[in-house]
């Protein structure tokens, strides 16, 4: 290797080394920006129909079960907190628990709990749908039903997609021998998505159940 030199590389210390922004994280954020506009379309549908038939809204919205939905909302919001604790564990590069106490939990345990809470939310929403259908609010029944099921349904599909993403990330934690930054990154970006879907639900909840 006598004819190889790295002198020109070594002498260049003018610009400090910097970790560039993680492209996975930035890409996820930009994609979530586009998701904002997807839900903007759904909000536009909802408000347009509501503006066209305010008396239908006044009649149909009374069928909503506010305490039930509030409970479901609190479950989803709490899942955001458990997801964030999972991210803290992933940032410690700790995939598995070192003891039974929550302070010793790893990413996998927190994400299982998040998955359970998210699954309860989706199941609760399906149960709520069946209640509302029995009270006459259906997808093809009237404009209120269409707006209600389109907005909450697309949100529910997003939550379901997030649940699948959590399973894939949990699976990765089991698949690797050395849990590293790549695995932590996928945990972090799934949590970004989860928080986003959570915030969208809060907006939907305020519009559909509080504002009516």
């Amino acid at each position: 290797m006598d004819n190889v030199t790295n002198a020109s590389v070594a002498s260049r210390t003018l610009v400090p080394m910097v970790n560039r922004p993680n492209p996975v994280a930035v890409g996820t954020i930009v994609w979530l920006g586009s998701e904002v506009m997807f839900f903007a379309g759904l909000f536009a549908i909802y408000f347009t129909l509501r503006g066209a038939a305010p008396e239908m809204w006044a009649a149909e919205a009374t069928k909503l079960n506010f305490p039930y939905s509030l409970t479901n909302t609190i479950i989803l919001v709490s899942s955001s907190f458990t997801a964030q604790f999972g991210v803290f564990a992933a940032e410690r590069l700790q995939p598995r628990s070192t003891g039974w106490k929550p302070t010793q939990w790893g990413m996998v345990e927190w994400f299982y709990l998040t998955y359970a809470l998210g699954a309860i939310f989706v199941s609760g929403q399906i149960f709520e749908y069946s209640q509302l259908v029995s009270e006459g609010i259906t997808l093809d029944g009237n404009a209120y039903g269409t707006a209600f099921y389109l907005t909450t349904g697309f949100h529910g599909l997003h939550v379901t997609g997030g649940l699948i993403a959590f399973l894939l990330v949990i699976g990765r934690a089991y698949a690797v021998k050395n849990f590293g930054h790549k695995e932590a990154t996928s945990a972090i970006v799934v949590s970004y998505y989860w928080h986003f879907v959570d915030v969208v639900w809060i907006a939907l909840f305020l519009v559909i159940y509080v504002l009516r």
């Binding site: 954020i29 930009v30 920006g33 506009m37 903007a40 909000f43 536009a44 347009t48 503006g51």
Partner: peptide, 30 residues
């Protein structure tokens, strides 16, 4: 008050501001 336009343009503000906020957070974390 026609709400659709207000909400649509407001969410456009969030679309841009959200990415700006994130990049700013990354920039400061360096």
């Amino acid at each position: 008050w026609e709400i659709v336009g207000t909400v649509g343009i407001l969410l456009s503000a969030i679309l841009a501001g959200f990415i700006a906020f994130f990049l700013n957070a990354v920039n400061r974390s360096q």
